[in-house]
Design a binder for these strands. Structure first.
Lengths: 178, 178
DNA sequence: AAAAAACATTGACTTTTGTAAAAAGCAAAT
DNA sequence: ATTTGCTTTTTACAAAAGTCAATGTTTTTT
């Protein structure tokens, strides 16, 4: 199903993780304009990935424990990234460099296939996300994401959820009341 | 750079295209709820891919001459697709089935690598698209897409461009005037 | 070429969502 | 336990975009 846990298992088994990393609440793992081609595994804590559009932040993704995260634009293109990644609470990460990761992926056919599957499911997720954002009514946007990711509404402050749902915290608050 | 023309070249060279297909203006290549795992090459004409959200259509992509298109959700998952694909004018396509395509991709390392590159650039494009849609101001959404895809504003009726840009045709018309 | 259909523009109006500011609620930290 | 600092909620108001309807304009069809 979800190929990521498999991937993590295998990287664990081969002890390919590099150093461990600690972020304090609100600390940035990365800011716009820098290249970061690492892949990170979240051991504990949570963070958000956002972009800035004319002084306005738009959250595009959250990461929790056991999630793999990256500045994917930079990871894929080796170019400076548009993304900010910020810890929402004290967060511990393990790191693997792109080169180590690529070597791992290229080492067996099974691994190559695994990466292909991950890219394919990312494409599917992004198509879902596109629909989420395009949905006109804030209430429906809320319902779609609530249904698919109820856990989100536990750990994450509403102001970031609102940003993820393309609405203000005020609008989200009004929706939840009704 | 863009890996798709290479892919098309190779499929041409090996004469892997199956039958040719003709669509009249406004005719549907596919509607929601059906499985379609084919890949299509547009020889002539143009079409749009859209989803329907509560009786409202949202255009998510256009296809022109020499573009490869598919109901990508269905293609990747083998499940019924959410997508509608409709010709915007008389359109001619060539078809390759997923099984033939997969066989082609699996046939050499170079082909496997090519597919990986295509998936990666699709991921990057979808991230751009996510930013496009998230951008708050309709004027900026317009400017972003105009800059990246000026050709779009030639061939495609404004009402579909408006739908792609998440605004009404009236709003798009007002933007263009100012 | 004419007629019909589809599309684009415009204006008046309505609705929705955003903004700003204040109050209330919570949670962490001393 | 109390204070301090966020976060959420609430209200009033403003602004932006959507709706509707009418009029032009372009494109397609006959």
């Amino acid at each position: 199903m979800n190929p990521i846990p498999n991937l993590i298992e295998k990287i664990n088994a081969q002890k390919l993780w590099d150093k461990k990393l600690e972020l304090k609440r609100n600390e940035y793992l990365k800011v716009k304009g820098t290249i970061d081609t690492n892949l990170y595994l979240i051991l504990n804590g949570s963070l958000r990935i956002f972009v800035v559009d004319q002084y306005e932040e738009h959250t595009i993704r959250f990461g929790y424990r056991d999630n793999l995260i990256a500045a994917l634009d930079s990871f894929l293109s080796d170019q400076p990234s548009e993304l900010y990644i910020q810890a929402l609470k004290k967060t511990t990460l393990k790191v693997i460099s792109k080169s180590a990761y690529k070597a791992f992926i290229a080492s067996t056919d099974e691994n190559r296939k695994l990466w292909e599957t991950i890219l394919e499911s990312f494409a599917l997720q992004q198509m879902e996300r596109e629909r989420d954002i395009l949905t006109t009514s804030p209430l429906e946007r809320y319902n779609r994401v609530l249904k698919r990711s109820p856990q989100l509404f536990q750990e994450i402050p509403n102001k970031y959820i609102a940003s993820y749902l393309r609405m203000t915290p005020e609008t989200l608050s009004r929706i939840k009341k009704s």
